[in-house]
């Protein structure tokens, strides 16, 4: 990905997160006192649109977080090889996080 594209994706995912996170926080924790029991969560996640939004949230937040970490690490004047290892390592980590999050959905 070109650096300009990376910047744009980080900006886009960040702005998307402002909305998704506001929604996530409001529904899960604030609206009507939040989801207070295990049964609440199961009922909430049974709705298909909720699964879509929460999945989108998981993917976006993981991307934004790890791309941010990559941006910080690349400020440390890494060699090309080290930078490639960082990118690869963070990509693998991101896939693992998303897989774990999606697996959590399936346990409910």
């Amino acid at each position: 990905m070109r650096p300009k594209t990376q910047w744009l994706w980080q900006a886009f995912s960040g702005l998307l997160l402002v909305f998704l996170l506001a929604l996530h926080l409001t529904v899960n924790h604030f609206a009507a006192g939040g989801l207070l029991t295990y049964e609440d969560i199961v009922a909430y996640l049974a709705q298909p649109w909720v699964r879509v939004l929460e999945t989108l949230f998981l993917l976006t937040v993981t991307y934004h977080a790890l791309a941010g970490v990559r941006g910080i690490l690349l400020d440390l004047n890494l060699t090309t090889a080290a930078a490639r290892r960082v990118t690869l390592g963070l990509t693998v980590l991101g896939v693992l996080i998303c897989a774990y999050g999606l697996w959590l959905f399936t346990t409910l």
Partner: peptide, 26 residues
């Protein structure tokens, strides 16, 4: 940003209680 990355991991770890059933979650 770094604090939030740390929290993302913490949040996902804590939510593993969901997979261990209602008692663990409560």
């Amino acid at each position: 940003g770094l604090v939030l990355v740390f929290y993302l991991f913490l949040h996902l770890a804590v939510l593993s209680a969901l997979a261990r059933g209602p008692q663990a979650y409560q």
